[in-house]
Simulated scan of single mutants.
Amino acid sequence: MEIVADDNKVQLVGEPLAVGDALPHFKLFDEDGNKVKMAELLGKPLVISVVPDLNTPVCSVQTKKFNQQADYHQNVRFVTVSKNTPLEQKNWCAAEGVTNLSVLSDEEESFGYATNLLVPDLDVLARAVYVMDAEGKVVYRQVVPNIGQEPDYLAALDALEQFEK
């Protein structure tokens, strides 16, 4: 898949997960450097917000918006994934007051390759939002065509309504 970054077309490592796909196996790291496996994220509906770099304005806004939404969706797990190191993520969360969602590191690119969201030419993840059911099946997907633009938050949040009935 091709996306735009800084007015240049770049390729992802493959075709990202589609609606109906199962979340593949991967590992991420929490703010303390502990391994978090895909299976540990399941058990309730899941929103995965994927950002290229937390230390940039658009990624910061995206993460803070989902952090705010986590208060309104108590039965949903919210996760942000980036390639920032666990220490960078921990420092960013402390500075920005982000406490309602988990921020996980894909510094080893396990998630990026498993979901095909890695942009190898830029060494970042593509900007994306996934909503999964409790078993890890994709019910909503948005891969933002221009990495510098925000996702459609309302569409992602609308996908959560099916779990709140």
Score class of each variant (00 low, 15 high):
Leu54Ala: 08
Lys83Asp: 02
Val79Glu: 01
Asn91Ala: 10
Val124Trp: 05
Ala134Gly: 07
Glu96Cys: 00
Pro145Trp: 07
Ser82Asn: 06
Ile147Trp: 00
Ala94Val: 11
Leu125Pro: 00
Val79Gln: 05
Asp53Gln: 13
Pro145Ile: 11
Gln62Trp: 02
Ser49Arg: 08
Ala134Asp: 04
Pro151Cys: 07
Pro86Tyr: 12
Ser82Gly: 05
Pro145Cys: 11
Asn91Met: 11
Asp123Pro: 02
Val139Asn: 01
Glu109Tyr: 03
Pro120Asp: 02
Ala94Met: 12
Pro57His: 13
Ile147Cys: 08
Val139Trp: 01
Val76Ser: 05
Ile48Trp: 06
Asn146Glu: 14
Asp71Phe: 12
Val138Asp: 02
Ala126Cys: 09
Thr56Met: 09
Asp133Ala: 07
Val58Ser: 07
Pro145Met: 11
Glu96Gly: 01
Tyr72Thr: 14
Trp92Gly: 09
Thr85Gln: 10
Arg77Val: 00
Lys83Arg: 15
Ile48Ala: 09
Pro57Ile: 13
Glu108Leu: 10
Val119Glu: 08
His73Gln: 10
Phe66Gly: 00
Ala134Lys: 10
His73Asn: 13
Thr85Asn: 10
Leu87Val: 15
Ala134Glu: 10
Ser110Leu: 04
Gln69Glu: 15
Leu118Tyr: 02
Val103Asp: 01
Asp133Pro: 01
Arg141Lys: 15
Ser102Thr: 12
Ser110Cys: 05
Asp71Tyr: 12
Pro151Leu: 03
Lys64Thr: 11
Asn55Met: 14
Ser105Leu: 03
Val76Met: 08
Val51Met: 00
Asn146Val: 15
Gln89Val: 06
Ile147Arg: 08
Glu107Val: 12
Val139His: 02
Glu96Lys: 11
Glu107Ser: 14
Tyr140Asn: 08
Thr80His: 08
Cys59Arg: 05
Val51Trp: 06
Gln62Cys: 08
Pro145Arg: 12
Pro120Asn: 04
Val81Pro: 01
Arg77His: 11
Pro57Cys: 14
Tyr130Lys: 02
Ala128Gln: 05
Val61Ala: 14
Ser105Cys: 10
Asp121Gln: 13
Asn67Gln: 09
Leu122Trp: 09
Asp106Ala: 04
Asn116Asp: 09
Val103Pro: 07
Val61His: 14
Asp152Ser: 15
Val98Phe: 02
Tyr140His: 13
Ser110Asn: 05
Val58Gly: 00
Tyr140Val: 06
Ile48Cys: 03
Val129Ala: 12
Ala94Trp: 06
Leu101Ser: 07
Ile48Ser: 04
Tyr113Leu: 12
